[in-house]
Design a binder for these strands. Structure first.
Lengths: 148, 148
DNA sequence: CTCCTGAGTTGGTATTCGCAACTTAGCATT
DNA sequence: AATGCTAAGTTGCGAATACCAACTCAGGAG
């Protein structure tokens, strides 16, 4: 399986790359928590949704917590864990690329902003001094941990 | 189809989210260009590889250029376009997340570095002044272009 | 003129997906 | 107490994808 790969991209894709998973995470990021809301927003089949949520919970990307509204029976809420919230970087990168290379006719429909100031944001590579590094200066290099 | 979605994440995933696509792009980023090399590196079935390369070419992520080595017949090389190279941000984000949350026992196998200085790199959100912004300060907001 | 290699295509089987229908559980209403 | 309503699933079945093996189709080399 891809989850055993020495390549971290392969492991991430092995866990997250199935159909619907990124869209489930997107909705979770927008605050959706209930099974039925995911279904409404996405139109995903219930068996597939059940399967995806289970594996996300199993791997610690989401958590399933029972909750009870007053005067209603107890239900389950699916929420992002810290690991899941960190996927915002991946989702932001996908969004940025899609807006640029598969544009929506009327322009971007969702923007990334700094919460308080409203300043626009993009996703990019940053060095250890907090300085952005252009794509051409980025290199991927194998370490000794890479098996033969 | 997801490619018509108003959500840029959905469009990106609709094009790139099929099985093998990210791994093909990873190999392309490492300089692989030939059909048979992709097959060797990934172990992907030839019909699937053919299909993925075709759609990547169709959407301008890769290009198929004939080339000829001296004393050999002409062949095809698949290379990233500028749009394809920009996916390094997405791949870097997936890698970073996988290294953190699905770690390889002996540590990361591939590092991101500044090409000349060797300084380590990470992927993150950056504001319009080039300053990194922590995750908690990032907000996603709908624009007027988002349809009802 | 046959062999070799790269770049695929074709055919059949095994998974996975998607839809529809059904199940389970508990509060609320009659 | 029986029925209804809704959330959260599960089950069964046809359709679409993926995987594997074998085959095709160049064009240059021996």
């Amino acid at each position: 399986m891809l989850l055993d790969s020495p390549c971290a991209i392969a492991r991430s894709v092995g866990l997250l790359g199935e159909r619907w998973t990124f869209l489930i995470l997107r909705e979770a990021g927008f605050g959706v928590t209930q099974f039925a809301r995911f279904r409404e927003q996405l139109g995903v089949a219930p068996d597939v949704l059940s399967d995806r949520l289970s594996t996300l919970v199993e791997y610690g990307v989401m958590e399933r917590v029972p909750y009870q509204e007053p005067g209603a029976r107890s239900r389950y809420a699916y929420g992002l864990t810290d690991a899941g919230r960190e996927l915002a970087v991946v989702l932001g990168a996908l969004q940025q690329w899609g807006d640029e290379h598969l544009p929506w006719p009327e322009g971007p429909t969702v923007l990334r902003r700094v919460r308080k100031t409203g300043r626009p944001l993009h996703v990019g590579f940053i060095d250890d001094r907090g300085k952005e590094v252009p794509l051409d200066d980025v290199a991927f290099e194998r370490t000794a941990a890479y098996p033969a």
